[in-house]
């Protein structure tokens, strides 16, 4: 063999290997619950691929990252259910064929076709949901007091409360405490909501993110987390069974996260397979009990793959009641969003 053909052959082999290597990688922009190896490794093993995961916080940050990326850099996006339309408007999500998605097996309330589709075209599918409500230490507070929002942030619990640091669910809870439906929140309601926030803020020891709120509850720094829920206390339940949560009589705010394929993905088929895996009963059970945070799977058939203990922690049997008593996150338009965020920051600075 002369040197030139050998070089050509080796470079061709290198190109093929590189191509193969590229074809075997999937890049996903996700929330932390997707980074649990117990969730990802079965998919990687089944398809012989590597899934590269990057976490983000905040839809704005994710959209900015995607808009600055080259087409093909990303294959899968996990996004807040109420923000799917923003990703579609920005041209970030690719259409999905509803026939590929087992939404018929989902809890009907969380299919949320109106959130996951635009102009009749489906762009995402709900994968997980839960509640922003009241988490508390049952050994330190009277559980009966947690059944009414007014007593939760009453003088009795002054300095023993932490507020979850995200304005949409907390303002949603404040609205519900005043009898305002989250879907109906408008500029005229902000004064009322602001009053509730001020009361809440005055009683609170801190306004904390996920880890800080868990730490505060686990160390006894606070006894109640307003805006908490199963996603906050489930991972602590094994070691501290007194940490629990409830949905008060006024109801709770329901969060939902969706997953979709990024437009321009270089691996659209593999990306779709990943989405299908995540919403399959097995994938859903693993996602629901992720080491980062727990939450209800959208697919009701995931129950077949969860243990009785896991279902008890998720309050599986109470879901019909919880779903009926919860309202979806507030989904403000851009102008109202600014006003709500300003009100939130003003309250924090009080």
């Amino acid at each position: 063999m002369t040197r030139l053909p050998a070089l050509l052959l080796s470079s061709a082999a290198a190109t093929a290997l590189t191509g193969a290597a590229h074809a075997q990688e999937l890049n996903a922009l996700v929330w932390c619950d997707h980074t649990d190896p117990a969730l990802i490794e079965p998919f990687e093993a089944a398809h012989g691929v590597k899934v590269n995961l990057r976490e983000y916080e905040g839809t704005g940050a994710a959209l900015a990252l995607l808009e600055q990326s080259r087409p093909g850099d990303w294959d899968v996006l996990v996004i807040d259910g109420i923000d799917v339309f923003r990703a579609v408007e920005a041209g970030i999500l690719a259409p999905l064929d509803p026939a590929d998605l087992p939404t018929g097996d989902f809890f009907p309330e969380v299919v949320m076709a109106e959130n996951n589709s635009v102009d009749g075209v489906t762009y995402a599918v709900t994968e997980k949901f839960g509640y922003n409500t009241i988490s508390y230490n049952a050994a330190k507070v009277d559980p009966a007091d947690m059944e009414n929002l007014a007593t939760v942030w009453s003088e009795k619990y002054d300095g023993r409360i932490s507020i979850y640091d995200y304005y949409l669910p907390v303002m949603g809870l404040a609205a519900m405490a005043e009898g305002i439906a989250t879907a109906d929140i408008g500029p005229d309601d902000l004064e009322t909501i602001g009053g509730v926030l001020s009361t809440m803020r005055a009683r609170a020891a801190s306004v904390a993110g996920v880890v800080a709120a868990q730490t505060a509850l686990a160390t006894g720094e606070v006894d109640i987390v307003v805006g908490g829920g199963e996603w906050l206390t489930a991972v602590l339940a094994g070691e501290q069974p007194d940490l629990t949560w409830t949905i008060p009589e006024q109801g709770a705010v329901r969060w939902a996260q969706s997953i979709g394929v990024v437009a321009g993905s270089e691996n659209p088929d593999l990306a779709l397979e990943f989405v299908k895996y995540i919403v399959s009963p097995e994938g859903q059970a693993r996602l629901a009990t992720s080491s980062c945070f727990w939450g209800m799977p959208a697919n009701a058939k995931a129950g077949d793959f969860l243990s009785e203990d896991q279902k008890a922690i998720l309050r599986w049997d109470s879901q019909p009641d919880y779903l009926a008593r919860s309202q979806l996150y507030p989904a403000p338009d851009a102008d109202l969003d600014i006003e709500m965020q300003d009100l939130w920051l003003e309250t924090l600075q009080q």
Partner: peptide, 20 residues
Amino acid sequence: GNTELTVPQVIMVQLGRRAD
């Protein structure tokens, strides 16, 4: 504990959801 906000914290809030 977010009992008061500094400028970098306010900057992060602007970027987080609204990408302002």
